[in-house]
Design a protein around this nucleic acid. Structure first.
Length: 267
DNA sequence: ATGGTGGCCCGGCCA
């Protein structure tokens, strides 16, 4: 028995894979050693037709995928503990650039989200990012119950606090850390969600994303922008959370590392 | 230092 994974564990992971086509060997490798029950992925960059459903089925996973045009974005949920009631996109904006998908797995309402990159503070893209975060909160209000087991996983493109960036002085006036972005994230948390990684790991400078350029990974210049936000009932059952930094190393890595959270199954 | 790398897919765009 894996001592890190006793019976009664529900393991949920989230990973911005930055192209499923380019990353499939690393994703299969990750599933092999991490064995998540549920894996949320972002930036699949494939159409629904090109989604490698058979390969995942062979590994024991059902899937829900929102791929849109395929070239950009794309979000997915893999599950080996059931997958029902799939909703793709927001009701008032079903396309929304293929950035939201939700399904119910093992009694947990699971969402995989890819928040738009704001590029620079004050730009049209920045305003679209804030608007999207507001839409996410409205969608939760309309579609889910914070008293139930809910988890919203994905690439939020927001570092919640200064301890989530390698050097706060380098981020003054920058996107990912601006007060309006952090307030928009807080408004989502206020719906009734807890940053589960932070519930388990208080240390500073634990990152999930590092720029490919300038040796940022090896120089520890990163940010924690990939989050797992769980409702209070689910967060109370969190046993362990980690960032799989090894997945950022080696051959053809994504620029993001997976986040893994283990929960005690519902009683 | 406005660079650097890597994904899309072949000329820039996006991160």
């Amino acid at each position: 028995m894996d001592p890190w994974r006793p019976p009664g564990t529900l393991r949920i992971a989230t990973w911005n894979v930055n192209s499923l086509r380019a990353r499939m060997p690393r994703v299969e490798e990750f599933i092999g050693y991490a064995a998540p029950d549920i894996l949320c992925m972002q930036e699949t960059k494939v159409t629904d037709a090109a989604f490698p459903a058979l390969a995942f089925r062979g590994l024991g996973y059902d899937h829900a995928h929102h791929g849109g045009a395929g070239r950009w974005n794309g979000v997915a949920i893999l599950s080996r503990v059931g997958l029902d009631q799939i909703t793709a996109g927001f009701d008032d904006d079903p396309e929304a650039e293929s950035r939201f998908i939700a399904a119910t797995c093992a009694g947990v309402r699971v969402a995989s989200v890819y928040v738009p990159n704001g590029r620079e503070v004050g730009t049209e893209h920045y305003r679209a990012k804030l608007a999207w975060l507001s839409q996410l909160r409205s969608h939760l209000d309309a579609s889910a119950d914070p008293a139930g087991d809910v988890i919203v996983c994905g690439d939020f493109n927001v570092a919640p606090e200064d301890r989530d960036v390698y050097d706060p002085s380098k981020f003054v006036g920058a996107t990912h850390v601006s007060p309006p972005e952090r307030e928009a994230l807080q408004h989502i948390l206020d719906w009734g969600l807890v940053d589960v990684f932070r519930r388990c790991q208080p240390q500073e400078k634990l990152f999930t994303w590092w720029d490919y350029r300038a040796g940022d990974f090896h120089n520890h210049r990163g940010m924690r922008i990939d989050l797992a936000l769980a409702s209070t009932s689910l967060a109370a059952r969190a046993r362990m959370a980690l960032i799989d930094r090894n997945a950022r190393k080696g051959k053809l890595p994504s620029d993001h590392a997976p986040v893994i959270v283990d929960f005690d199954e519902a009683p």
